[in-house]
């Protein structure tokens, strides 16, 4: 276990520091959440009001927004930004690479 011997004052300080960090992180999560709602609204907006915006622009735009939202989810909600996530993220990106190849194939070299 990682619990070391500490005297009472140190324990209290360390504990308070942890609580502060946790609370700070939680604030980040809420901000992330609000941003994600915002991104979702923009995507929906772009589509609903697509008489004013050309289709050629809307499609890549909402895809980009989706990717940004997923990055937020991964790095904030799923703690991928924390220490100890290097290998999981390496494998995740490898999976994304294989996924990308699959999708690329199906939208380019499948006859219509």
């Amino acid at each position: 276990m990682t619990n070391e011997q500490m005297n009472n004052v140190n324990v209290r300080h360390a504990y308070e520091f942890r609580r502060k960090k946790s609370a700070e992180e939680m604030r980040h999560q809420v901000i992330t959440f609000v941003l994600m709602i915002f991104l979702t609204l923009i995507s929906f907006g772009a589509v609903i009001f697509n008489e004013f915006i050309p289709v050629k622009f809307v499609l890549p735009f909402i895809l980009l927004l989706a990717v940004v939202q997923v990055i937020f989810q991964l790095y904030y909600f799923m703690h991928a930004s924390h220490k100890g996530h290097e290998l999981p993220m390496f494998f995740m990106y490898s999976g994304v690479f294989a996924a990308f190849l699959t999708i690329l194939a199906m939208v380019t070299i499948v006859w219509w």
Binding site: L101, A105, V110
Partner: peptide, 9 residues
């Protein structure tokens, strides 16, 4: 052809 792609991927 979708089968072939998925199978060979």
């Amino acid at each position: 052809i979708i089968w072939e792609h998925l199978f060979w991927i």
